[in-house]
Amino acid sequence: MTDNPHHHKTPSGKPRARSFGIGFDGTPGPFNAITDVAGVSVGYSTLISGDGPLVVGQGPVRTGVTAILPRPQADLATPVFAGIFSQNGNGELTGSHIVEETGAFNFPITVTNTHSCGVSRDGTLRWMSQVLPAALDSGWGLPVAAETYDGFLNDINGHHVTSGHVAEALDGAASGPIEEGSVGGGTGMIAFGFKAGSGTASRITEWQGRAYTVGAFVQANFGKRRNFTLRGLRAGLELVEPAIREGTPRAEKGSIIAVIATDAPFLPHQMKRLARRVPLGVAMTGGFGYHSSGDIFLAFSTANPDAALAPPGRIARAEFIPDSDIDPFFDAVVQGVEEAVLNAMVANEDMTGRDGNFVPALPKAWLEEKFG
């Protein structure tokens, strides 16, 4: 447990998992967020409007965009070493091919709903051409944009996310404590039959007398209720109610996007190794990577900027922690992802969307009874 208020409440006062006395492994950073990694910032654009029957193009709308800036705005053209891992590829993360090819990417990351992924990608390029035009003067941009499906609550075929909303999320990106739950791209998302969405956590890992930060951010939209596990408790077996209520029958469509950030010096193959550990954190909450779930994970390091942007014509040099010392960082990824998923669920409320489709929040009274 910790007395840090940022560990217990979001900036708007919503509870986080630790506020109910739930204990976690590892040591969180000051904000217990991906923004504990210096230079990383997060912004949201949240779209909530309308009620009642679905009218495509009009609503109801329950969606948004999340922006994650891996470096300060002025440095966004400088690549970060990175790796990706797809546990189950029933989803999309643009820019994945160049990450696989070069072990790096630049520009912001955006996360939104499935049918707005292209808009968020293109909106990022439009925004970059305005705020940092030199980054596109002599080359092309291949930004990272990811998605999960929110069509149970949202008019997903109405295409309500615009490049203006993408710019709003990017312009609003800030460091420090960040909101969680039904915000940004996570607005219309569901996990284990409970309202979920955006969640984050961080861990401090020491190596050779120096403290490094590993931050996790998830857009959680996955899992069957029967599998839900909270710190080893098979909670789904006793949480049959409150249940989802369907005005329109729901197809099983769920995914999770996770972004791991660290200031530890690692090479691209090591970032891929960190990304491969994300599913272990997801599994600790009961996520098993079912067929329809796009479980796609990105990890990046803000270290070694000179090597990541190495000019041609001379030898480039990068520092890195040896593979033989990487295990504590694997711990940090697993611990951070587990807590980020639970934060996305706890910092939430009931939501009714299109056609009266209703998704309950994880019951706070039950959390108090079990952990308070």
Rank of each mutant, 00 (worst) to 15 (best):
S292Y: 12
G26R: 04
I260Q: 00
P60D: 09
R126N: 03
G57F: 01
L170R: 01
V161G: 03
G236Y: 01
E369D: 14
G158T: 08
G164A: 00
A283S: 14
A258W: 06
P28V: 04
A318T: 14
A235F: 13
G197N: 07
P15L: 13
G123V: 05
G172W: 12
A146G: 10
P177M: 01
V337P: 06
E100A: 14
T262R: 08
R16Q: 12
R314Y: 10
D171K: 01
P279A: 12
V341Y: 03
T2R: 11
V359W: 01
N348Y: 13
G188I: 11
A216C: 10
T10G: 05
F300A: 04
T148P: 01
G172S: 12
A17C: 06
H159L: 01
A340V: 11
N348S: 14
V214R: 13
A211H: 08
V119Q: 09
E349I: 05
L267H: 03
G232P: 10
P249F: 05
I34M: 13
G289H: 11
K370E: 00
A77Y: 10
G281K: 09
R62V: 03
G172Y: 13
E349T: 05
P108D: 10
P360Q: 04
G372H: 06
V334T: 12
P53I: 14
V218I: 13
L342T: 11
A220P: 04
A261H: 05
G64Y: 06
F20G: 12
A211L: 07
P279N: 08
A17Q: 03
A299V: 08
P360I: 07
G185N: 10
T114R: 01
F228C: 04
G188C: 07
T10H: 08
D295L: 08
P305H: 01
M351K: 01
L309S: 15
G356E: 08
F105D: 11
S116Y: 00
A361T: 09
R71G: 09
G50N: 04
D36K: 08
N90W: 14
T205I: 15
T114C: 04
F24C: 00
G83D: 04
F300W: 09
G184Q: 06
A303T: 03
Q130R: 14
Q335W: 15
E238H: 05
S12L: 11
F194L: 02
E179F: 13
F192K: 02
S138H: 15
G158E: 07
R277G: 01
V56A: 11
G247Q: 07
S182Y: 04
R250P: 04
T205H: 02
D325S: 14
A340Y: 14
R126K: 00
M128T: 06
K195A: 02
R250A: 13
A104W: 05
K14Y: 08
